[in-house]
């Protein structure tokens, strides 16, 4: 049992102060912006919920939200199974394991805009390997002109970039399973699939939820990579929520609507966060009880 002691607040105080400084002050400002029409530094008009009304009925926003949900769903549906498969295929130890881990983790440490740059080059028909290869195969591939190609390129780029995270998490989770479990399964003559279904998957639940949470949130906020790769185009094909928001706030300088949009965005994230967090909390105790 944990002891009840409110002196623990002294230990968390530095964190609270650090995070509150960067979180609460900007949040308050955004709320202030969202109810005013800001024409200049000294020209502000209170408009109530006008901006919210405008944003909630903005068809472009609905489209961006739809694209965003589709994108996040595709990312999760592909990256999580693929990551698990990779973790299962990784050698458990030895130099092969180290080498594969290092190679696998490489994309994770590449700055977001460099990721965009890499794929921008890689996918081009004239100077990129992938683009040239696809065109060589007779496919008419052009990510700057064709919406479908652009969308798929962004998706493949994200899979390339982030599947390793899931693989690393799942790999670590697999290593935490005691050898005795596998021996017991062998004695019972369990099939490969049964071992996965009844031993590995339940043990991976905790780490996979973390992976799911991180991937959902980060894909929902994706900005830099598609911005560098396609700039949101062609048309609006790869304009996701963050991109649309930044266009509004920075590009068109519509502070009010951008702020209202930010708050709605924040509410969506908050709800998703709560759902995942509750799942995580429920996954926690059962896992601890088994140890």
């Amino acid at each position: 049992m944990k002891t009840y002691n409110n002196k623990a607040w002294l230990l968390v105080l530095p964190v609270v102060l650090c995070v509150a400084f960067s979180a609460i002050v900007p949040l308050m400002t955004v709320v202030n912006y969202s109810v005013q029409d800001i024409l200049g530094p000294d020209q502000k008009v209170f408009v109530g919920t006008e901006w919210f009304k405008l944003v909630m009925r903005d068809p472009e926003l609905h489209e961006a939200l739809g694209r965003q949900i589709l994108f996040s769903a595709a990312v999760l549906a592909i990256e999580i199974p693929l990551g698990i498969l990779l973790a299962l295929a990784l050698p458990a130890q030895g130099w092969r394991s180290s080498l594969a881990l290092v190679l696998l983790a490489m994309p994770l440490l590449i700055p977001q805009n460099v990721v965009g740059t890499i794929w921008q080059i890689y996918g081009r028909g004239d100077i990129g390997l992938a683009g040239a290869a696809l065109n060589g195969l007779g496919l008419d591939y052009n990510y700057t002109g064709d919406s479908m190609d652009a969308w798929l390129t962004v998706l493949v780029m994200d899979i390339w970039h982030w599947t390793p995270l899931i693989a690393l998490l799942a790999f670590a989770g697999l290593r935490a399973i005691p050898e005795a479990y596998y021996q017991a399964a062998r004695i019972d003559g369990a099939s490969r699939l049964a071992v996965f279904r009844f031993i590995q998957l339940p043990k991976l639940r905790g780490v996979l939820l973390i992976g799911l949470l991180l991937r959902f949130m980060d894909s929902f906020m994706i900005y830099t990579e598609p911005f560098v790769l396609t700039g949101g185009g062609p048309g609006n094909a790869t304009t996701f929520l963050s991109q649309y928001l930044t266009q509004k706030a920075v590009g068109q300088f519509d502070l009010g609507p951008a702020a209202a949009f930010s708050l709605i965005y924040f509410l969506i994230i908050l709800l998703a966060c709560f759902v995942f967090y509750s799942l995580l909390q429920n996954a926690g105790p059962t896992e601890k009880a088994e140890h």
Binding site: S22, V25, V30
Partner: peptide
């Protein structure tokens, strides 16, 4: 989990 894009200007 809050998107940095939300807070750029206030930051």
């Amino acid at each position: 989990m809050s998107p940095p894009a939300v807070f750029l200007l206030p930051f």
